[in-house]
Nucleic acid binder design. Structure first.
Lengths: 290, 290
DNA sequence: CGAAATATCTGACTAACGTCAGACATCATG
DNA sequence: CATGATGTCTGACGTTAGTCAGATATTTCG
């Protein structure tokens, strides 16, 4: 009754029935679920028909019919793509945007209703994040982003907050060598954000220098995504980017208060070297030749 | 992107697609999902046709057809109930039990596969428990059980473990006054277990004494179920049971290291009284007249 | 250019699910 | 024992989802 498998199955049962009622709430707008899903995919910014079909796992015949029915309702317009007239793009009309907004309102109300029922809000949300990350693990995309964009800033904020919690005397960004954003943009470096669906769950920066090496900075994985080997994926991606940029030597600094990081570096070909900067926070320094 | 509602919706998306693949795994046995669900409901011990229909939310016409198709396959037998020949009972045949076992194996394999993919096993399971409890909150049943049964022993084990964690010097059952099981059985008392689906998530004991009062003992709510007001429900049920048994005075002891318990008692009509026993662990004593 | 590949669309078909009305047997009640 | 209520079953029907083969238009590439 209480073994791990039973607990997973209990979760599955609970969630299956919840998903059922969620789907039903979408039926209130007198439109079959398939058409509603296509409308919502378009509303969420997917416009390429083939991409939507792929995302929703639909047969091309079915997809075509669903698009037609939405078009007949006056909710979407489709046009041939300029660069390839075989492909089609779909976008919402004014009425389509209204209808999409109604679905969004339903989804939001459903989510708010769920949250309102429960007093352990934060614990519940953390649990949901963890499970969503675990379920979508294979679909985590590592996107190259500007280190100043919203997603990157969110990651960095969480990263600093965590250092503040884990370092004995806290962490103050202004005392550390905050890398210049342009050093983490091509062609000097790059900044990678791990996106699970629309939620940033990790990041890493590759910072170019003028000293014959580049540095790995700001490696962070959200608590909800730990244990999925995301740190390793981020590091691999950063190293690949470095190779692309013609970088042959990487360095990084870290702190012994972050043992899992040190372990990751040691197990992936980094070797410890003497201090190479005067940043007050790090006490461990690594190097890796590509 | 990061507000509570978005996080809930991200979870919904992740889980919806996971549930979809789960359902598909059931299609491998060349039987429509509806029939498979009925077969599984019967396999899990539901035999009353009306009850199954209600549980699965099926129309009586559809239900009848699904039963017929399972019967044609030789997987189930239906008989009229002895006490009411209009109602029917369904049970598995030998072949039905084999087929049910195959579905169980599929479910277990799916759950094991999920767990095997992730290294944060315990965190993941705890998150699943929390969410499952939250989703099934309305369906939590308070069942009167023998304090020696498996479910009760599980709850008590968890309860002692938690006291061990929360008391400064740990907790040793043998030093405490472990109530006699028969004092927590009718007619002297009772023992209630809160069951969410098949998982015990809370308990409370009503222990009869020969001193003109009964005691509330072993009030426990699983961490995964806190914030759902289950403690209050358990206490209410225990008080109702006490009234039924003709008990007019209740007492309990607790410890200030469990502040949420003290708060619950104070807010539900209990008043603090002087120590009334020599148990080494409690430092707070309450009484309530019914 | 011509052939092959690609993306979409259309028609024909099927499976699954679900609904509704009415038939039938059985039970509860006055 | 007649009446209405209840639980199940059957037939007729509609919707949704999905599959498959082939038509059409466009692009790619030798």
């Amino acid at each position: 009754m209480l073994d791990a498998v039973s607990r997973v199955r209990r979760f599955n049962r609970a969630v299956t029935s919840a998903v059922g009622t969620l789907d039903n709430s979408f039926l209130g707008r007198s439109r079959p679920l398939g058409a509603a899903r296509v409308l919502n995919a378009i509303g969420h910014g997917r416009s390429d028909v083939a991409e939507i079909r792929d995302y929703l796992g639909l047969d091309s015949g079915l997809m075509s019919r669903l698009l037609r029915s939405l078009e007949d309702e006056g909710l979407i317009e489709t046009t041939a793509r300029e660069d390839d007239a075989r492909r089609r793009m779909a976008k919402l009309t004014r009425a389509g945007r209204r209808e999409f907004a109604a679905y969004e309102a339903l989804s939001n109300a459903q989510a708010e209703g769920f949250l309102a029922q429960h007093s352990q809000r934060e614990a519940l949300l953390a649990a949901m994040d963890l499970i969503a990350s675990a379920l979508t693990r294979e679909r985590v995309a590592l996107d190259e982003m500007d280190p100043r964009c919203e997603e990157a800033r969110y990651c960095l904020g969480e990263y600093y907050a965590e250092l503040g919690r884990r370092f004995k005397h806290g962490f103050d960004v202004s005392l550390s060598r905050d890398p210049d954003a342009k050093d983490m943009r091509r062609p000097r470096g790059t900044f990678l954000v791990a996106m699970s669906d629309t939620l940033p769950i990790g990041c890493v920066g590759l910072k170019g220098t003028d000293h014959g090496y580049a540095e790995i900075k700001r490696l962070w994985v959200a608590p909800a995504a730990r244990g999925l080997r995301l740190g390793r994926r981020l590091m691999d991606a950063a190293e690949s980017a470095a190779r692309e940029l013609g970088i042959t030597l990487l360095r990084l600094d870290t702190n012994s208060a972050l043992p899992e990081a040190g372990q990751l570096y040691r197990s992936t070909g980094w070797r410890e070297i003497p201090r190479f900067n005067d940043d007050p926070y790090p006490d461990l320094f690594f190097e890796k030749r590509l």
